[in-house]
């Protein structure tokens, strides 16, 4: 028992948690920014895949995971341009466009991957910051303190975003655009501009999440590799109600649930993977049933804003 739960196993467990959770946190933070501003992007499953694919290709071509992440961010932003133009500027239906983005993202990345890399799958070079001193610690040393530098930069970004959302005028206008767009308009803000920036940031974060998944978590791209992670991010966004700290906590719970499979198997407990995949959804359903309130989402979520319209 004790030798099974050795430092190596624990370190692997911790590493698995980190790499499973990070893409989800990024996607959920992106979705939170969008949802708080009143844009429910049902397309983030597709945006994630686009980010994952563009990040993978960039990292392969340049040989740098850092540029790969930037490629993923760019891919996510480009994918969300569709939402920006069709929904925010023209006021077309978010649900339909979101589903379209998901379908097209899934389809085009699978087609491109199979055509370009299907015959000879390649892996992205790894990247690790070995932090002197700390990396020699047991358990956390080989897992946490040998992560890629990208991980630390992203952590910093999350702190910044949490601060911006909660403490600045920008965050306030984002939330106003989702709560009562007309009041933001009356206060001299610009709803369309606010939502546009939110959607582009949404694309950047979700794309980064996808790129993290392909470049750092797995080191390769496979068609449909997100496997519903985008929808889980939407669900986590709903549960967290706009707070980045909650997103981190709920995503960690998901990451632990996914990563615990291997240690459990080592001690002879096998739980089907499907149970863990269902778990977050069951939690959400129970939460919705127990705390059934419509305030889980901003009131103006899904509604295009038209100045002067009643």
């Amino acid at each position: 028992m004790s030798e099974l739960l050795s430092a190596t196993v624990l370190a692997a467990f911790l590493t698995a948690i980190i790499v499973q959770t990070m893409p989800l946190i990024l996607a959920a933070v992106g979705e939170t920014i969008g949802e708080q501003s009143g844009v429910l992007n049902l397309g983030i499953e597709g945006v994630m895949l686009v980010g994952a694919y563009s990040g993978y290709v960039t990292a392969l071509v340049t040989g740098s995971p850092w540029l790969g992440m930037l490629g993923g961010i760019a891919g996510g932003v480009v994918a969300n341009l569709l939402m920006l133009v069709l929904n925010i500027w023209l006021g077309l239906n978010q649900i339909v466009i979101g589903l379209a983005i998901t379908l097209m993202g899934e389809g085009i990345t699978a087609v491109l991957y199979l055509q370009n890399y299907g015959k000879s799958p390649q892996s992205v070079p790894g990247d690790a910051w070995v932090i002197p001193g700390l990396s020699d610690l047991p358990v956390v040393g080989p897992s946490l303190f040998r992560q890629s530098g990208i991980f630390w930069v992203l952590l910093l970004t999350l702190v910044v975003v949490a601060f911006l959302l909660a403490r600045t005028n920008w965050g306030l206008s984002i939330r106003a655009a989702g709560q009562k767009p007309s009041s933001l308009d009356a206060a001299g803000g610009n709803v369309v501009r606010t939502r546009s920036s939110a959607v582009l940031l949404n694309g950047a974060f979700v794309g980064a999440g996808g790129a993290f998944l392909s470049v750092l978590t797995t080191g390769t791209f496979t068609p449909f590799m997100t496997g519903g992670l985008g929808f889980i991010a939407i669900v986590i966004t709903m549960l967290s109600r706009g707070r980045v700290a909650w997103i981190v906590v709920t995503s960690l719970l998901y990451g632990i649930a996914v990563a615990i499979k291997n240690p459990l198997q080592l001690i002879g407990v096998t739980v089907p993977a499907d149970v863990f995949q269902m778990l977050p959804f069951i939690v959400v359903m129970l939460t919705l049933i127990i705390f059934a309130r419509s305030s889980m989402v901003p009131p103006a979520l899904g509604a295009p804003y038209t100045r002067g319209a009643r």
């Binding site: 569709l82 077309l92 239906n93 466009i97 589903l99 379209a100 983005i101 379908l103 097209m104 389809g107």
Partner: peptide
């Protein structure tokens, strides 16, 4: 023609997009 059959997803997505645009 050497494409994956996932290409159909792209076509369906395109129909959705053009549907909203036509409507608009």
């Amino acid at each position: 023609v050497g494409l994956s059959s996932d290409f159909l997803l792209v076509v369906v997505g395109l129909i959705l997009v053009f549907m909203t645009i036509t409507e608009y």
